[in-house]
Write a protein that binds this DNA or RNA. Structure first.
Length: 225
DNA sequence: ACCCAGGGTCATA
DNA sequence: TATGACCATGGG
């Protein structure tokens, strides 16, 4: 049974896990592929990103120096299925330039998390969420990723106020949850899963997060509604 | 035919 | 500093 000392954020995690099961993120075979995916999935369905990554693999371009060697137009063509392909071609190149200049994965792995985060945020096309995706899922750092689903789900639960900024929200989660890479990994993946399945932007009345066939609907005993 | 997606940048007031 | 426009494909 849940202790009063247990944070609501811990309890929601357990309920999401019971409801949806482990998500096993990030789908990707290497840290570099994870980083590429993090950029390509900006405001884009993951299934579209997979097609773009498959194109890169076919062209043997899933590599920083190969990507930089591509013409903008041909890179964009490979990225076409992921949408915003012209913009993403530029962002991907900007990232690869930084990545190689910094000495690659092994060199970057030696950096302090805050320093790494700061550096990522200075790369054109990498904002807070993409930076944190990369830190958590590629560099295995205990950084909690915030996205639109996180805002939506937790404000509907009444656990946070609406309209909080990214850093503010991230600090709430990181203070409520002990730094645990595996837990942060699974939690964000579960939030995305729950958001896609049951917490739509325009929910039908009270349907959101309250489907009877989902354990998440049983918020009794959590102290949440 | 709509709605939405694992955001970020840039121009404007 | 705070909105709004813009980027674009593909699945439900």
């Amino acid at each position: 049974m849940a202790s009063k000392l247990t944070s609501p954020f811990e309890r929601v995690y357990q309920q999401l896990l019971d409801c949806h099961g482990p998500q096993r993120w990030w789908p990707g075979d290497s840290p570099f592929e994870v980083m590429v995916g993090a950029i390509l999935t900006q405001n884009t369905n993951w299934s579209n990103v997979e097609k773009a990554i498959a194109n890169l693999q076919e062209q043997e371009c899933l590599d920083a120096s190969q990507i930089l060697a591509c013409k903008d137009a041909s890179l964009a063509e490979m990225l076409r299925p992921s949408g915003y392909f012209n913009i993403k071609a530029k962002r991907l190149k900007a990232f690869c330039r930084w990545y190689l200049d910094a000495g690659g994965f092994k060199e970057l792995s030696g950096r302090d998390t805050d320093e790494l985060r700061h550096a990522l945020l200075h790369v054109h096309g990498i904002g807070p969420e993409t930076a944190d995706d990369i830190l958590l899922y590629a560099f295995q750092r205990p950084v909690f990723v915030i996205d639109a689903y996180t805002h939506r789900i937790f404000s509907r639960f009444g656990l946070i106020e609406e309209g909080l900024g990214y850093e503010h929200l991230r600090s709430i989660f990181e203070e409520a949850l002990s730094p645990d890479v595996a837990r942060y990994n699974e939690y964000h993946a579960l939030i995305v899963k729950h958001g896609k399945d049951q917490c739509r932007p325009k929910p039908r009345c009270a349907e959101c997060c309250l489907k009877p066939d989902c354990q998440q609907g049983n918020l009794a005993g959590t102290g949440i509604r």
